[in-house]
């Protein structure tokens, strides 16, 4: 007869795969919301720049809310609000929606700074050369302004990737939630947290190094 039964089993190779898969989920939700959020945010930034006082009184305060309320509150609020208006979003979809809006709010101010960093004389010069408004925007403002705010944008990207850990609150099993699950089973918090931390570090550090290199090359 078995004397006692243990619910806890040690950390194995399978669990490493489990964490790796969870890291991919973190990556996926971040890539999805960062790419949509960046497009949306750039558009908002352009509106903020061009819209004058109309934008100042409409989208600026809304974007400000997303920057002044903790992400975790936004997530819980949206997750509980969506069913009220008849939308049934799973944790992943809710996470993507909120992370996208959050990214857009952060990118909007970055994009606006980028547009404003292009000297007006340069834009006037491009218009004088016969470029249309849109040509000027895409061929002059985008490359020059984009370069100026690239480091700030990378900062936003890294921030959002790390903040995606908060989607675990809704029950989406990404990297941090997966480590919680494993800790409950193996009772080895230190080891598993170290591995999860290493995964985050491996996702985030190369991007920040790469961006730093770019920045140095451009500043020459």
């Amino acid at each position: 007869m078995q004397e006692s039964m243990s619910f806890f089993t040690g950390f194995g190779l399978n669990d490493l795969w489990f964490l790796g898969e969870a890291a991919l989920k973190t990556l996926w939700i971040s890539v999805l919301s960062i790419s949509i959020g960046t497009l949306l945010g750039t558009f908002f930034g352009w509106l903020l720049h061009e819209g004058k006082w109309v934008a100042t009184f409409t989208i600026a305060p809304i974007l400000d809310v997303f920057r002044s309320v903790p992400l975790i509150i936004q997530l819980v609020l949206f997750y509980n609000f969506a069913p009220i208006i008849g939308l049934n979003f799973d944790p992943f979809a809710s996470g993507v929606v909120i992370l996208t809006l959050y990214t857009a709010a952060l990118v909007a101010s970055v994009a606006r700074g980028g547009i404003e960093s292009v000297p007006p004389s340069m834009r006037r010069a491009s218009r004088s050369l016969g470029m249309s408004y849109w040509q000027d925007l895409f061929h002059v403002v985008l490359p020059i302004g984009g370069r100026a705010v690239f480091p700030a944008w990378v900062g936003v990207v890294l921030g959002v990737m790390k903040d995606s850990a908060l989607v675990s609150v809704l029950g989406y099993v990404e990297l941090l939630k997966a480590s919680q699950v494993l800790i409950t089973r193996t009772q080895e918090p230190l080891l598993i947290l170290a591995i999860a931390g290493a995964f985050y570090f491996a996702l985030s550090y190369p991007i920040s190094r790469y961006a730093h290199k770019f920045e140095q090359r451009w500043s020459k």
Partner: peptide, 8 residues
């Protein structure tokens, strides 16, 4: 501090 989530 900069490359891991605050929650972590």
């Amino acid at each position: 501090a900069r490359n891991t989530p605050a929650l972590f």
